[in-house]
Design a protein around this nucleic acid. Structure first.
Lengths: 183, 183
DNA sequence: CCTCTGTTTCAGAAATTTCTGAAATCTCTG
DNA sequence: CAGAGATTTCAGAAATTTCTGAAACAGAGG
């Protein structure tokens, strides 16, 4: 398969960005290719479109599957696996955020709790900072859990509210008086 | 300087997580150490607390400065540089998010716009997907810009609203009728 | 304009990550 | 259950990133 110049440039960009996103070049390229391809692709096609080794493609696809970022399709009469990305971009974003949270936040939250459980270590400052950090992460993951439950419709609405958000928050002052003076 | 077991474990954890966060082990450790130290530290102290080379510390501090994650302090009569992290965790989070956006999102947004400017490439599907992705990123960065402007007080309030958020969003339906039927 | 204290740079060493080709494994199908 | 097609595994090669020690640099006093 030969890529159009547009596809080519898109794929190469994702490859380059890969390292900043915590994935490697090949994984970034495979994902980009699947993302802009209207039809599902099999490993062989990906391999020759990207000019990498067959085994590298295999590992990349495995990695993407572990991230839940690709869907597996089958074509009747063909026993090869075909891969695509979800049509719905919001679904992709949700997956991405969920996986990053799992890999980048959760282990640290566990560690902080573990450290607190070990009890007073005679280092008040460090202990206080760790507790503060844990609380902040808990607040953020709690908010995230809330967002995750919202259907896309409402999420989009929230995101497009713009400068009305500040006022909206204030409106809740009467509803939840105990929150008003939160430090 | 010798670390307490608590400090030690915290620092090592941040070192290990570093690679997942897109920084290297030493940078993670330096940051962790500054974070849990009540007093500003100089490069020499950091070097021997972590057991790395002086030059490695220098590069790590430079990296952290490029992320705006550390503050420089000076002690009268001492010409060495002393480093700390901001006391306010929210400030740290804001910086972190801003920098990650700058490194991980903005370049891609630029690239997508650039690709669109190159005009029709006769690949309708890819073009549509790229446009859709750009729109989504624009929506999210727009929302982010809004959040960034909120003072911490309101941000905390929003994050602690919990399940009331969904209802709150709906309440705006009357206020902005044109948004109601957004696709 | 030395010298002393502290910092940065840089070339190469060490470690880690990524990639490949070959072999092993898996799984339909006749 | 043999064989063909497809995928995965794996050990080593290649590439990249991180780290170090030595040298260069900076600037405040004397």
């Amino acid at each position: 398969m030969t890529l159009t110049p547009l596809q080519q440039e898109f794929v190469l960009h994702f490859g380059e960005m890969g390292s900043r996103w915590g994935i490697n070049r090949t994984v970034g390229q495979i994902y980009a290719l699947l993302f802009i391809s209207s039809e599902p692709l099999n490993a062989e096609t990906i391999t020759d479109a990207l000019g990498v080794s067959r085994s590298n493609t295999s590992m990349g696809l495995k990695e993407l599957q572990s991230w839940n970022l690709v869907r597996l399709k089958h074509i009747p009469g063909d026993r090869r696996d075909y891969f695509t990305t979800p049509d719905d971009l919001w679904e992709i974003v949700r997956t991405l955020v969920a996986e990053r949270k799992k890999r980048e936040i959760d282990p640290t939250l566990s560690k902080l709790r573990e450290l607190e459980l070990q009890g007073p270590a005679g280092d008040d400052y460090a202990e206080a900072r760790i507790a503060e950090l844990r609380e902040l992460i808990e607040m953020m993951t709690g908010f995230y859990a809330e967002m995750e439950r919202l259907e896309t419709e409402r999420l989009v609405k929230l995101m497009t509210l713009g400068s009305k958000i500040a006022g909206l928050i204030d409106k809740t002052a009467g509803m939840f008086p105990t929150l008003t003076n939160r430090k």
